[in-house]
């Protein structure tokens, strides 16, 4: 394996002079799943936003595949994000008016690369074969999160960011979802950063870090 896919150096974020986090540095290799623990309000989601280019850090640098995000305008960041990042959210955020297949295909459509085969592959990979024409309101929470995972990986992004992906799930379902996420991330060779306050979720990671106000450290 070559150098780290994701490199973060001395990242800091302040809001109105009040620090959220500081001196965050980490590296994530291709196919590696890194979990970041932290208390509520410590800035885990803010860190993910900074990694995704959705928030401008107050200091530091983020590089993905050797390309720095620093100094890019919003449009460039948006184009970059649609090709290079996949998201899994706590609240699923599956669009209620699209079918399961259409939800999964959304990143491919945004890239102008519709690929029905790939969508079918991901449906099967997450155990939802045959669900393509179903509407989200007919699915359970666990099924919805699997749709979200399929959507996050359908376009083979190098980076997957998961923000409390099991926060709305029962323990058994959460376990299955984390298994799936870890398996798929490794299978696709993506670097995955997972923020969570659940030790059970973090147990699936290759590394577990803890985010605090003064920085990030091994948990």
């Amino acid at each position: 394996m070559s150098g780290p896919l994701l490199r973060v150096e001395h990242l800091a974020k302040h809001y109105g002079g009040v620090p959220v986090f500081e001196k965050v540095s980490l590296e994530v290799a291709r196919g590696e799943l890194v979990a970041i623990l932290g208390e509520s309000g410590v800035g885990k989601s803010t860190l993910l936003n900074a990694l995704a280019g959705l928030d401008v850090p107050s200091a530091g640098r983020v590089e993905l595949g050797g390309r720095a995000l620093h100094g890019l305008d919003d449009t460039t960041l948006a184009h970059w994000r649609r090709a290079h990042v996949g998201f899994v959210f706590q609240a699923f955020h599956v669009l209620p008016h699209l079918t399961v297949a259409q939800n999964i295909a959304l990143p491919l459509l945004l890239l102008g690369r519709p690929d029905h085969e790939r969508v079918g592959e991901m449906l099967a990979a997450v155990g939802l074969a045959g669900f393509d024409a179903r509407l989200p309101r007919t699915l359970s929470g666990g099924q919805l999160q699997r749709v979200a995972i399929a959507r996050a990986l359908v376009h083979r992004p190098p980076l997957v960011l998961a923000d409390e992906p099991t926060g709305n799930l029962d323990p058994d379902t959460a376990e299955r979802v984390m298994d799936l996420l870890a398996t798929q991330v490794r299978a696709e060779g993506a670097a995955c950063v997972l923020v969570t306050h659940s030790l059970h979720a973090a147990a699936h990671a290759d590394r577990v870090l803890r985010l605090a106000a003064h920085g990030i450290e091994d948990a």
């Binding site: 919003d74 449009t75 970059w80 959210f89 955020h93 669009l95």
Partner: peptide, 11 residues
Amino acid sequence: GLLVHLGLTRA
């Protein structure tokens, strides 16, 4: 918000 995350530009 989701669309922004997925890479839609503001425009």
